[in-house]
Amino acid sequence: MLKLRGITKDFNGFRISDISFDVEKGDYFILLGPSGAGKSLLLETIAGLVHPGSGTIELNGKDITRAPIQQRKVGLVFQDHAIFPHMKVKKNLAYALHGQSNENIRRKIRSMSAGLGIEDMLERYPSTLSGGELQRVALARTLIQEPEILLLDEPLASMDSRLKAEIRALLRQIHRGGQTIMHVTHDYEEALSLGNRIAVMESGRILQTGTPDEVFRHPKNGFVAHFIGIKNFIPATVRTGDGLACAETPGNMKIRLTGGQENEKGFVMIRGEDIVLSIEALDSSASNVFHGIVDEITATPNGFDICVDAGEKLHALVTGISRDKLNIREGMKIWLNFKATAVKFIEE
């Protein structure tokens, strides 16, 4: 549906280079990357506010690289909503319907405002609306022109968690209605919870594209892994002396893993969810068993992040129930167990 090929652009100190990917009809496509990666510039390029230096943009088989903004059928919602402050909500919604019959405009505003729950704000000025209400108005104003693809620039940034959940639900609802969405964010949790396809971007380049599972389970390189929040990411050298290979870390841990060449340098990566904590050493199929001292316990949205110093600091994710059952406290001795197959080695 949306096809980008070799998009390159220098703009106000930002640079994007050789950007290529496809967004299919009905996709919820997430562009994930840190601030300054060029994500917003890429969105503005797709919307037509900025012309690419080279490369092509196709929408539904039509080359729109140089098409005027008005003819693109691309809707862009800005991070700060960009609601016109001198117009009531109703007039904001009607802005994109310029030239249509009054009856048409009334009908569309009625159905769009009902769908997004803003019927009772139509006569209000934007300065009287809250952040969440402004976001709804911004979405309504863009969706009312029935874009082929909806581009969202950090739509959940600077919102508290309750509001985030509310707007997330709204975005899911819009997506379920058949709207193709491309959503830019720096938050991997947002990416996981909304996207069905993810592209990771850094310094103006796309590093990896795939389903959330592909990207989160098999990050292509160190940046992707770090960025998507995998904390157990330790430099290591592979030793294949005695049977099963192991990776030697600077803190003298020998972590068993599958694959790897002798003396190969790189990083071992273990997802926090794959590490089992126990009070005694477990007799199990896990070939990595270490003991260490609980260094720090941090609450996360889904439980606790237990940081254990076992030569290297490893993070294990446990639920509140498990933490209570094992009575995990800082400073106590604890065992870490994980399978060699849970260890991913990424060569440098």
């Binding site: 919307a47 506010l49 008005q70 809707g75 862009l76 960009a82």
Partner: peptide, 15 residues
């Protein structure tokens, strides 16, 4: 006047 407002208007199809 924030330039974003002008940009937003352009993306909403205004000349």
């Amino acid at each position: 006047v924030p330039e974003r407002l002008e940009k937003a208007a352009l993306t909403l199809g205004a000349s």
